[in-house]
Computed example of a mutant assay.
Amino acid sequence: MPRRTDLSDTFCPVGRSAELVGDRAVLLILRDLFFGVRRFEAFQANTGLGPQILADRLKRMEREGVVEKRPYQQRPVRHEYWLTDKGKALFDVLYAMRNWAERWAYSPEENGAFGRAVRYTHRKCGTDVGLSSICPQCGDMLGYGDLKGEMSPALLAEREARVAR
């Protein structure tokens, strides 16, 4: 298979950012980080990624300054992964992807049967923000840390089934 072109030194901002966030595994890891997942085993269970791919992407995200490792156990040494400010700034990207998918990626039957996969509530005023980037109640711009996400029963069941495998 031909090797893809490395865009890490292109002047195009979309190409340059796609080098990191254009990777499915990285997006799934970021999704979990935004839901408070910190440990390797939980990432593996939630994403379905193999251990080699997961370890590679976490190392890459660390090299890029998106996450930092913090030890939580000494013998044996085990680490948690925490978002840096650079990583937290990617929230808007994933939130936009989520909003697009909620509007366009499901069939009408899926939307009717399950509703939204994730319901977001503005922490400050408690309003369900729907698919908005601005709180419909208080008018605040919404970003990292401003929202509380609640997975739908369908998404929770899917995640639990994946973990049980």
Results as ranks from 00 to 15, higher is better:
R103I: 00
Y106K: 07
R78E: 15
Y120D: 14
R119G: 01
Y106N: 02
E110A: 11
W104F: 11
L94D: 03
E109F: 04
A96D: 15
K59G: 06
P71Y: 08
L83E: 08
A101R: 12
S107Y: 00
T84N: 05
A55L: 03
G87Q: 03
R75H: 14
R98P: 00
R98S: 01
A117G: 03
L90W: 10
R103F: 01
W100H: 06
C125V: 03
R98C: 00
R63F: 11
N111G: 09
Q52C: 01
A55P: 00
R70V: 13
A117V: 01
E110H: 03
V118F: 05
H122L: 08
F91P: 05
P108S: 03
L58R: 02
E109T: 05
R119L: 09
P71S: 11
R63K: 13
K124S: 12
R57D: 02
M61P: 04
A105N: 05
Y106V: 00
A96C: 06
V93I: 14
E80I: 02
V77Y: 01
R75T: 13
Q73V: 01
V93T: 13
F91E: 09
R119A: 10
R116S: 07
K69Y: 06
K86V: 10
N111Q: 15
R116E: 11
E110Q: 11
K59R: 14
C125L: 08
R57L: 03
T84F: 10
V66M: 14
R60Y: 06
Q74R: 12
C125Q: 09
A89G: 12
V93K: 08
H79I: 12
A105F: 04
M97Q: 11
G87C: 04
K86S: 14
A89S: 15
K88S: 12
A105R: 04
Y95G: 00
L94W: 01
G126Y: 09
A101Y: 08
E110W: 06
K69Q: 15
T84I: 07
V66D: 02
Y106I: 00
W104N: 10
R98F: 07
S107K: 01
L58K: 02
K59S: 12
I53D: 05
K86N: 11
E110F: 07
A96I: 05
V77K: 11
G65H: 07
R60L: 13
A101M: 06
M97N: 06
H122C: 15
G65I: 10
G87D: 02
Y95F: 13
H122V: 10
P108C: 03
Q73K: 13
R103M: 04
W100Y: 09
K69E: 14
R63T: 12
L58Q: 05
V93A: 11
E110R: 04
L58A: 02
M97E: 12
W82E: 08
G65E: 10
Q52N: 11
E68K: 12
G115C: 02
